[in-house]
C-alpha cells in the first residue's frame, strides 16, 4: 500500500525541492562554469574567450593574491577542522554524563549557531577590538594579520563547536549499552572503553563532522568579510573573499571572468579534498 501510493505521489514530494534545486543551484552552477571562459561585465552579456582567464591566473599581476589566499585557506581549513572536532567531541563527552542542567549546557553551547555569520563577525569585531583597546595593546584585528587569523579561528570554533557537539552527542547516545557493559565485564577501564569501543562506534558521526567542518572552513566567507575584511593588506583574505574581491571589487571587464575562473578552481579543490576525506573516514567505520 505504502509503495503504491509512493509511486503515485512522489512528484508532489520531490518536485518542489527538485525545481528549487535546479533553479537555485544546478543552473547557476553550469552557467558559472561557462562564465569562467568568458569576458563580461554583467552575466547576461558575455563574450567567449576560451582559456584566457585560466592563463591569466598564472600571471602574478592578475591573480591578485590568489596564492597567498589559497595556502592561508588550506591552513585555516585544516586547523579549524582539527580544533572544532576535538573540542566538539570533548564537550559532547562531558555533556553525555548524567548531571543536573545538562540540557541547559547543551543549549548554551549550541546557541552561537543560531546567529548568522555576518552578524557574528561584526559583533566579535566590536567585542575583541574593544577588549584589545581597553588593554592598551594597540593591536586590533585589522592591524595584525596574526591576530586576525586567530580571531577568525576563534570565532569559527565558538560558532561551530556546539553544532558538532550535537552530532557527537547523538552518536555517543547511540552506542549500545550492551557493548559498553561487555567491555566493562572484560575489564576495560574508561579510557579503553572510549578508544576501543566508543570511538569506532561513532565513526559515522566523525565522518559527517569532519566533512562539514572541512568544507565550511574552505568556504568561509561571511565571518571573514565581517571580522577582518582581509585587512591588513590582504593578510587575512581567504579564498572565498579573494574571489569575491576579484569579481566585485574591480572595475573593468577582465576581472569578473577571472573571479569566475578562480571560483571554478576553488570548487574543484573543495570537492577533491572532501572526497579524499570521505574515503579516508568512511573506511574506518565499523559495524557492531
Amino acid at each position: 500500500m505504502v509503495g503504491k501510493s509512493l509511486k503515485k505521489w512522489w512528484p508532489v514530494f520531490v518536485l518542489p525541492t527538485f525545481i528549487a534545486f535546479v533553479i537555485g543551484f544546478l543552473w547557476p552552477f553550469i552557467w558559472g562554469i561557462y562564465l569562467s571562459f568568458c569576458r563580461f561585465s554583467t552575466v547576461n552579456d558575455v563574450e567567449f574567450v576560451g582559456f584566457d582567464n585560466y592563463k591569466k591566473l598564472l600571471d602574478p599581476v592578475f591573480n591578485q593574491n590568489f596564492g597567498h589566499a589559497f595556502w592561508l585557506t588550506v591552513l585555516f581549513a585544516f586547523l579549524s577542522t582539527v580544533l572544532i572536532n576535538v573540542f566538539g567531541f570533548l564537550v559532547a563527552l562531558a555533556l553525555t554524563g548524567k548531571f543536573k542542567g545538562v540540557n541547559t549546557f547543551r543549549t548554551v553551547f549550541f546557541m552561537p549557531n543560531l546567529i548568522g555569520g555576518i552578524v557574528l563577525g561584526y559583533i566579535w569585531n566590536t567585542l575583541v577590538n574593544g577588549l584589545l583597546v581597553s588593554f592598551g595593546t594597540h593591536l586590533t584585528l585589522k592591524t595584525s594579520g596574526v591576530a586576525g587569523f586567530w580571531g577568525l579561528t576563534t570565532l569559527l570554533l565558538w560558532q561551530q563547536i556546539g553544532y558538532m557537539m550535537i552530532i557527537y552527542i547523538a552518536g555517543l547516545n547511540n552506542v549500545s549499552p550492551d557493548l559498553i557493559e561487555a567491555a566493562k565485564i572484560d575489564g576495560a577501564n574508561s579510557w579503553q572503553t572510549l578508544i576501543k569501543v566508543k570511538l569506532p562506534m561513532i565513526m559515522p558521526s566523525i565522518t559527517i563532522c569532519t566533512f562539514l567542518t572541512l568544507t565550511n572552513g574552505f568556504k568561509l566567507f561571511d565571518q571573514n568579510l565581517a571580522l577582518t575584511a582581509g585587512e591588513p593588506k590582504k593578510m587575512t583574505e581567504l579564498l572565498a573573499l579573494n574571489i569575491y574581491n576579484t569579481y566585485y571589487g574591480r572595475a573593468g571587464r577582465v576581472w569578473m571572468g577571472l573571479g569566475q575562473a578562480k571560483a571554478v578552481i576553488f570548487f574543484i579543490l573543495v570537492v577533491a579534498i572532501a572526497l579524499i576525506q570521505l574515503r579516508f573516514t568512511t573506511r574506518r567505520e565499523t559495524q557492531a
Partner: peptide, 8 residues
C-alpha cells in the same frame, strides 16, 4: 583618540 585605535 590614540592613533593605534583608528582602524576601528
Amino acid at each position: 583618540c590614540d592613533p593605534a585605535d583608528l582602524s576601528t
